[in-house]
Amino acid sequence: MTGDCTFKVFRGDRSGGELREYKVPVETGMVVLDAIHWIQSHAAPDLACRWNCKAARCGSCSAEVNGRPKLMCKTRLDDFPQGEPITVRPMKAFPVLKDLVTDVSSNYAMAKKIPAFTPQPDAAWKWYQNDIDRVQEFRKCIQCFLCQDVCHVLREHNKHAVFAGPAFFVSAAALEMHPIDGLDRTPLLKEALGIGYCNITKCCTEVCPEDIHITDNAIIPLKERVVDRYYDPLLRLWRKIRRLRAGAT
């Protein structure tokens, strides 16, 4: 892929904005973030965007490329049809500050609500590889918030104050499933983190750049804990019977 490519980039701030067009010369292997940098250094030095590692590791350069939540540093231009313009907008689920930079502070407020790792008082600091592999998947999270961006509970319904969102169910799962952690976050998941709002559309899993199985491995098991605890005595009884049977065979 060579030649020029037209980029339509959102320019604006809290009071509004518009898409502006830039023609960018394309090199082999180029990613969207390279194009944004080219625009900064050749056409619009005040174009605001966050970035850091350029290797899909830091989670800073999240944006919406042709309407899809993406890390700009990992989105190759040759993935798009040649000759067609590429649109870059800020994440919709967060208030825009300027151009591609959004106010993600609601996430930091949410992070404070989840109690940190607290070892069981009598913990024998020893665990199995399987237990760690399970938690390790969640620790891969780079906090890019693309899952928050795509989640309709936040994106369409603006439930930031009462719904933690997929990224924080991932961090809660990392703690809840940790073999040494001794806290019980189930009441918190039900109330302050609002896990009940999630209706498992799996959009978050689809956009995760780290391929964390957010819905299947984090959200659903946590939902099950809430349901077991608060809503389903029959299921609990049935499980008990099943366990007894399994023990018998």
């Binding site: 701030d13 900064q40 030095p45 005040d46 174009l47 605001a48 965007c49 500050l97 300027k98 151009d99 930079v101």
Partner: peptide, 14 residues
């Protein structure tokens, strides 16, 4: 020299 405003302006920061 930089253009634009003081709002999140990477050229100014640089």
């Amino acid at each position: 020299h930089v253009e634009g405003s003081v709002l999140f302006n990477p050229g100014w920061h640089l």
